[in-house]
Design a protein around this nucleic acid. Structure first.
Ligand code: FES
Ligand code: FES
Lengths: 135, 135
DNA sequence: GTTAAATGATACGTTTCGAGTATCAAATTG
DNA sequence: CAATTTGATACTCGAAACGTATCATTTAAC
């Protein structure tokens, strides 16, 4: 099962690098170098994080990206939502509204309850907590 | 997030139908009719379940599929493994063996522990337990 | 002010994979 | 034999994931 896609993973890695090194601005060139992520791809990702208010950016020489909010307030689930959409563990193939079985589907009830707890646990992970875990 | 794909879902629905109606053999034609699943697609799915020892099959007139083992012993996670591969919530994009960060990746540890509990809970679901839930 | 280095915006290409179809062969029943 | 069923397997199609390319804009340093 794919829990986390590349966009999210790269985003988290970039955020960890920025949060873990308190210099001012990090240009994409530095990040893509250190993290071995294709430059234009990472750039697109960071631009999204900027639009979403997680990163600040400045153009021109000496520019780059910096955190817009403290690592404690950057949640893994936020990043996942940005790059992967809803976190619901959608077992149902049809769009929920259209599913002919939604009333009777026995899988649905079971999974909804498991889902809730799982997402709650996921939601406790922040950039800060990931940093704290590092050796 | 896609927890369950179409193969798995269709497989579960077919298994529920078979388990819930104690006639002898269920030809694909009947199942695909009742469950509104394209005939050749469902057929392929049931053939896999047969190979995996979950269904019995017999050819020819009056043939079809029947459970090979009791509903209590058919686990959702077994079906998921068959059609979706490993249940690991693989956050890592690279194949595990090749991932350059596998030692240091802070996401990995966090997610592995959440994963364990989640899969354990999933693993409690069987065809029988789904049947019992039905109204 | 010119130039180099950076991001903003956005369009495009490529690969992968999920979902479903098509076909022929083999078995079973009557 | 004829009809009905599964076995095996190759193929198509479309969407989504993944990644590239390009041009415009801003900024700092010289
Ligand atoms: S198949 Fe749609 S809710 Fe279960
Ligand atoms: S990125 Fe490979 S283990 Fe985390």
């Amino acid at each position: 099962m794919r829990l986390i896609n590349r966009n999210t993973d790269y985003a988290i890695k970039a955020l960890l690098h920025i949060a873990g090194n308190s210099s001012g601005r990090f240009p994409v060139s530095e990040l893509s170098d250190v993290l071995k992520i294709p430059h234009p791809f990472l750039r697109k990702i960071l631009q999204v994080l900027q639009k979403e208010g997680i990163l600040l950016s400045s153009k021109g020489k000496g520019g780059g990206f910096a955190l817009a909010i403290p690592p404690k307030r950057i949640y893994l689930t936020d990043v996942m939502k940005i790059f992967q959409g809803s976190l619901e563990l959608d077992h149902c193939l049809y769009r929920k509204e259209l599913c002919p079985d939604i009333k009777t589907c026995p899988l649905r009830r079971k999974i909804l309850s498991l889902e809730k707890r799982f997402v709650q646990e996921l939601a406790s992970i922040t950039i800060q907590s990931l940093l704290d875990d590092k050796p």
